[in-house]
């Protein structure tokens, strides 16, 4: 009972505290780089699309708001034929970014994306793809991967030996 009264008194005292409210949009919020806002698709240091269409972001998405279709160019490089995020469903949890093995999908500190029509919240690849490496500069998945997709030849990647000469029996 006493604690109840004490609680009430302490809450009452908040009448005289400083307000925490930020008067958006007159005042702007200071955004941190790791803020989970608008989702983008980034490019690798060589200007190629980072997304390889592995579907992991779509699988990780708890609201299933990512749909894509992987395609392959003439070099065997995978890219998304289309990549669609339905932001009217997105909860900005960032699981897609966590799941992404190539740093392609990233969340950015931008939340000002309200629309009057819900349909306008459906972003296609053209809306998502930016000409930047985003938060993780310097990574090019195809230099690490084993397969050759026009970025490097077999054995020329980081941490790779030259291809085996199968005609040789030497150790």
């Amino acid at each position: 009972m006493i604690s109840h009264l004490r609680t009430m008194w302490l809450v009452f005292l908040h009448l005289f505290h400083k307000r925490e409210t930020i008067q958006y949009p007159e005042e702007k919020v200071a955004m941190r780089p790791r803020w989970r806002g608008r989702i983008v698709l980034t490019k690798d240091p060589d200007g190629g699309e980072r997304c390889v269409g592995c579907y992991l972001c779509a699988a990780a998405c708890p609201v299933d708001c990512i749909a894509l279709q992987a395609a392959e160019d003439e070099n065997g490089r995978r890219y998304p034929e289309f990549f669609r995020i339905n932001f009217s469903r997105c909860i900005f949890c960032g699981y897609c970014e966590e799941a992404c093995p190539t740093y392609a999908i990233q969340l950015t500190p931008d939340f000002e994306m309200a629309e009057y029509r819900r349909q306008d919240l459906v972003y296609e690849k053209e809306d998502l793809l930016i000409d930047s490496q985003g938060k993780y500069p310097g990574y090019n998945f195809y230099k690490m991967a084993g397969l050759s997709a026009g970025v490097k030849e077999k054995g020329k990647g980081e941490n790779e030996e030259a291809p085996v000469d199968i005609k040789s029996l030497l150790p």
Binding site: H14, L15, H17, R19, E20, T21
Partner: peptide, 8 residues
């Protein structure tokens, strides 16, 4: 309520 929660 807002006042007591330090809001406006």
């Amino acid at each position: 309520l807002a006042m007591w929660q330090d809001r406006l």
